[in-house]
């Protein structure tokens, strides 16, 4: 089954990549600065994205906005739990502080030509794979 609207998703991605790079959200330095609470910048980005996201979600609900196929826009609730979110989140946080890149910016950085990020990305896939293998033995 071919993907519907590939160009649409490509353009959303291009826009996302440009924003990540131009705002410094993809910069290792900005993440370092964020974890030192030394600048409002990253908190402003995530905070205002969140604020507008909340607004958009409310508008979607209030006005029953449909997606481009005419289907209602629904988001499934995350599975309840504490351990997996707290432990998994902490592990990600450690990696985020070291590599200075989360999964989105990683792709923008590879496109921008910061080649060592390819190694980070490959290793991210390895980490994902190992999680999949040991998943049943972890608390969730």
């Amino acid at each position: 089954m071919p993907v519907k609207r590939p160009l649409y998703f490509l353009l959303v991605g291009v826009f996302f990549g440009i924003v990540l790079l131009k705002s410094g959200a993809a910069s290792w330095f900005r993440i370092y600065e964020m974890f030192h609470f030394a600048s409002f910048h990253m908190f402003g980005i995530i905070g205002s994205a969140l604020a507008f996201g909340l607004l958009f979600n409310q508008l979607i609900k209030r006005f029953n906005v449909k997606d481009l196929d005419g289907n209602p826009i629904t988001q499934t609730d995350k599975n309840p739990g504490i351990a997996r979110y707290l432990i998994g989140g902490t592990v990600f946080g450690i990696g985020w502080a070291i590599a200075g890149a989360c999964p989105g910016p990683m792709f923008a950085l590879m496109g921008a030509g910061y080649w060592p990020v390819i190694l980070v990305f490959a290793s991210t896939m390895l980490g994902t794979y190992v999680y999949g293998v040991v998943r049943d033995r972890l608390p969730h």
Partner: peptide
């Protein structure tokens, strides 16, 4: 360093079911 950072990002995000964008 890069391998370690990437590994933890990959393992942690999947364990937590999302990263900065998803959560």
């Amino acid at each position: 360093l890069l391998i370690l950072g990437g590994f933890l990002v990959g393992f942690g995000t999947r364990y937590a079911g999302g990263c900065t964008s998803g959560h």
